[in-house]
Design a protein around this nucleic acid. Structure first.
Length: 561
RNA sequence: UGGGGUGUCGCCAAGCGGCAAGGCAACGGGUUUUGAUCCCGUCAUUCGCAGGUUCGAGUCCUGCCACCCCAGCCA
């Protein structure tokens, strides 16, 4: 196992749960939930929340529900419901029982609203949004009671029913809780419980034309599902008193508690559903599953493995401070998993032909190499022929290059072809324009798996693919989508910092022939190049297509610059 | 500004009055048929700032400063 796998630092949420379990609070049960709104695709920040909620439940032998917080039909779609379910499962988690929806509980919420009205704790307010904002007051300035605050229970009941029956227009009025217009916490200044929305809902269709607000829904959903620990992000801290207020004033079946942790921010990355949507809508990327997107769908297509993502999330401390995690830390977790689990293969991205003059034309010699240098993963076989390709960057005519600086093929010198022979570059052939066209080389016999004789010192090891037995492939090179480490934080707007070179499509790359049998989503390490994945949708034996997930760690590049 | 939070290495953080964990990054060195992996080593006399309490303070007290969140009929 990778070392990040075993490191799961404790955190304040786990400590609270541990204590509750020890003290037999909630009968020792642990029930958590992951409550996305289906208004977009899940991203890496949600992955942290998923790992936390599902992970904690798993750790304490509890359960975790998947519940869609679908209280705002205008922004939500079935497409997002489907993608979210797929993502959670892909990450390797299974929710407890059926998928749940806030909309499953709309009847109960409606009854509870009436309960509040009957207790004189809610009223229908006719103030326009602008007026309501005015009445709400400001930080230093307490709010004023709405003129509708003292309507009779009967009138409120009647009005609320008419709201439900669609007799009133959108925006005409709302149902508000009667809390405290002078509270320093703005959320307590008579928050909205229900608003009129004459829109079809992806789950309930046309059944409702009033929808509960987040505040009037979330805690009650938790209570209905008997959630013990309701874990959410920091921006909801101010809502906790309201969360508790509803639970205290409603006949709820259980008493959950809310705990908040810091949202994940990644450098060079945007994690705002609105902005991610903008990237899709403005066609900056090809879609929600573009491999450059930090969405779970995007990361999956990019070749970031579920295990790598989980290892990363599990290694993240859960704290109340909100910092920016270096994207390199994420990349390291993914690389770690891929290094451990991806079989090795060879691919030449920028081919230049090498003709081995002392090899017979038409001869094919099968070279066998382990699929992994350390782990037992079987072998792969690569045909070696008179004509092969190596990468253009792996050859130089400049023999003054020091051995330390250039550990590749130099004219007149030797290099090891990985898992095959040591060869010597004898001569170069150029085309009319002077461009290097072909290298003539000779192999040192008997050097497969055996060190060359005294006096022959290969400068290094390079990768290769047979020119006659290899296959052509399309390779898509991905790089960071943004050039600014905080694309979100700049005044000019994040679109200004889109990396124009975040995608390069290479046609005519050469892969070892066995690679055409790769299954979509199968990851490989192309030796000396990086980790690549067979594209989930576009790869086939006829048109091999690989996405670069991430490069190898390269300590050498930084030293020479 | 009122309220809610947060300030410990370049980044993320542990720390709960008794010698400042760990990960990422960086930098040295070793092994290596991947400039990868792996291994070994280096990397905070100091915890936002200033006072105070204490034998002893990152931890307790007081004051200040900085940053984030709320002020949607979004979640």
């Amino acid at each position: 196992m990778s070392n990040s796998d075993s490191i799961r630092p404790t955190n304040f949420v786990r400590d609270i749960i541990q204590k509750d379990v020890n003290d037999n609070v909630h009968g020792g049960k642990v029930i958590t939930r992951f409550p996305p709104e289906p208004n977009g695709y899940l991203h890496v920040g949600h992955a942290k929340s998923i790992c936390l909620n599902f992970g904690l439940a798993e750790e304490f032998g509890g359960q975790c529900n998947l519940r869609f917080d679908d209280t705002n039909p205008g922004k939500e779609e079935q497409e997002f419901v489907d993608s979210i379910k797929e993502d959670v499962q892909w990450l390797g988690f299974q929710w407890s029982g059926e998928v749940r929806y806030a909309s499953d509980y709309f009847d109960t919420f409606y009854a509870w609203a009436i309960h509040l009205i009957k207790n004189g704790k809610a009223y229908v307010c006719d103030l326009s949004p602008e007026q309501a904002s005015e009445y709400r007051g400001w930080a230093t300035q307490p709010g004023k009671d709405s003129p509708f605050r003292d309507r009779s229970v009967e009138e409120n009941l009647d009005l609320f029913e008419r709201m439900k029956n669609g007799e009133l227009d959108e925006g005409a009025c709302v149902l508000r809780a009667k809390v405290d217009m002078t509270s320093p916490n703005m959320n307590m200044r008579d928050p909205i419980l229900y608003r009129i929305r004459k829109e079809s809902h992806h789950q309930t269709g046309g059944k409702w034309c009033i929808y509960p607000s987040y505040d009037f829904a979330h805690g009650q959903e938790d209570a209905i599902e008997e959630i013990t620990h309701s874990i959410c992000t920091l921006e909801f801290q101010d809502h906790r008193p309201l969360y508790d207020w509803f639970l205290d004033n409603l006949p709820v079946p259980s008493r959950p508690h809310q705990y908040e942790f810091g949202r994940l921010n990644l450098s060079y990355t945007i994690t705002s559903k609105r902005k991610l949507k903008q990237l899709v809508d403005e066609k900056v990327v090809a879609g929600w599953d573009d491999p450059r997107m930090p969405t779970v769908h995007g990361m999956r297509r990019r070749g970031f493995t579920a295990r790598g993502i989980r290892n990363f999330c599990d290694g993240l401390p859960v704290a109340k401070s909100g910092g920016v995690v270096d994207v390199a830390q994420f990349e390291a977790a993914v690389r770690d998993d891929l290094n451990e689990n991806a079989p090795r293969a060879m691919c030449v991205l920028d081919p230049v032909k090498v003709v081995i003059s002392n090899m017979e034309e038409g001869a094919v010699e099968q070279m066998t190499a382990p699929a992994h240098p350390q782990r037992e993963m079987g072998t792969h076989t690569m045909p070696f022929t008179r004509e092969i390709y190596i990468d253009r960057a792996d050859f130089s005519e400049d023999s003054s290059l020091s051995r330390k600086k250039f550990k590749r093929l130099v004219l007149g010198e030797w290099v090891r072809l990985r898992s095959a022979y040591v060869i010597k570059a004898d001569e170069v052939i150029r085309d009319a324009s002077g461009e290097l066209q072909e290298i003539r080389a000779s192999l040192v016999p008997g050097t497969v798996g055996i060190n060359p004789p005294e006096g022959i010192k290969p400068r290094g090891v390079i990768h290769w693919v047979s020119a006659t037995e290899g296959k052509q492939a399309t390779i898509r090179l991905y790089d960071r989508l943004f050039l600014n480490e905080a694309p979100d934080a700049t005044d000019e707007g994040f679109l200004k910092y889109v990396n124009p070179e975040s995608l390069k499509v290479l046609e005519g790359c050469w892969i070892e022939p066995g690679l055409i049998d790769a299954q979509p989503e199968q990851s490989f390490q192309f030796e000396r190049e990086g980790y690549f994945v067979a594209d989930r949708f576009d790869h086939s034996a006829e048109h091999p297509t690989f996405n670069k997930t991430i490069g190898l760690r390269d300590t050498w590049a930084s030293k020479t610059n």
